[in-house]
Design a protein around this nucleic acid. Structure first.
Lengths: 194, 194
DNA sequence: CCACGATACGGACACACTGTCCGCTTCTCG
DNA sequence: CGAGAAGCGGACAGTGTGTCCGTATCGTGG
């Protein structure tokens, strides 16, 4: 189950440098996916991504075996930002405000592509999903933020950080703007107080 | 857009009595859909429904032009129950407890088939959807219940009944039992207080 | 009771999308 | 430069949806 690599080198990053054209196509696919997913949501036909990138389907599927892999690659950037922000907010004085601030950002990130937050919610629930792996740093970052808030007694203690994320991810989106409706977020936040 | 009926009779129910075999097949399809949707969720292949009902695909699609139509037909029963219950609860003394009781029932209903509540949530947001039409009585029933609670000052007044339903429908489900996780419901309910 | 027109049946079909396979091209390194 | 590895691309098989139309069945009027 480890892929067909001969299992030899325990090398840190890659077995060997990828060929120039391979790297180029990889980048093109990623850029194309960004555009297509942004316009048509994360369920857009893969074939459109390949066409836009100017490569064949075979190429697409070699670089990204499933749609989920594409999604995860795009997710990566967002996760990085969220993780960094979590660290910063950990320094901020008010634990509750930090929590709220992060969640708002999370919310904006999750609406970049239509259908994205649904996928994330599914991924969070399933450890085997590649999405779960991609979200790990973010989960950790938010976990710290959340623990601090809980220790400070500003959120109820019968819910886990992961559950909060799951819940927020599932909130309905405004079909126009794509953002989570502010009111819904408010209600959940209010419900999180002890 | 009214179907191909000649527009003549403003008859109360149907233009003409359906043929015996047609009615029989309709029932068979509905029964089959119940089983299939219960086992495989509302995204199960339509072809399976047809096969289980012992009819051809053509027959299925004539009775139910889209998957959504099947779904709506099954939804009908649930909507009836919820509407009736809403009326009963309107008599109960405590407006808040009535509201909570109804929402719990709503929640259970929405978990009968996997993926059902997501569809309902989508349908509620889109007036053109057949789901919206099917849900109308239920919406009305809950609306009354909700208005009473709001008038009594036990829920915040900046949210509409429809928004509450939308929000509840979107709550994540326990993948094991299929029910909404109690904790999530609690949080939203708490957030609804004024 | 039968024949005929309306009604409904069913499966083949056209279409869309996913993911795989393999003959051919292009890169890279000695 | 020229092998051989690495990568490409599009044809293809598989799955599912919804349509179309020749054929069978119903039910009614003669």
């Amino acid at each position: 189950m480890k892929s067909t690599t001969p299992a030899a080198s325990p090398a840190p990053t890659s077995a060997r440098a990828p060929r120039a054209d391979a790297r180029r196509n990889y980048e093109a696919l990623l850029a194309a996916a960004k555009v297509v997913f942004a316009r048509s949501g994360v369920d857009a036909p893969m074939e459109e991504v390949a066409r836009r990138a100017g490569v064949g389907q075979g190429t697409l599927y070699r670089h990204f075996p499933t749609r989920e892999h594409v999604f995860v690659a795009l997710l990566g950037e967002r996760v990085d930002l969220l993780d960094r922000t979590a660290r910063e907010l950990l320094e901020a004085p008010d634990p509750w405000q930090s929590l709220v601030g992060w969640l708002r950002l999370y919310d904006q990130s999750a609406t970049e592509y239509r259908g994205m937050s649904t996928r994330v919610a599914e991924g969070l629930a399933d450890d085997a999903s590649p999405v779960a792996a991609a979200c790990a740093p973010m989960k950790a970052g938010f976990g710290a933020l959340f623990d601090r808030a809980r220790d400070a007694g500003v959120v109820r203690s019968d819910i886990s950080a992961l559950q909060v994320l799951t819940m927020i991810s599932a909130l309905p989106k405004d079909p126009e703007r794509g953002t989570t409706i502010e009111l819904y977020l408010d209600i959940v936040l209010k419900g999180l107080r002890p």
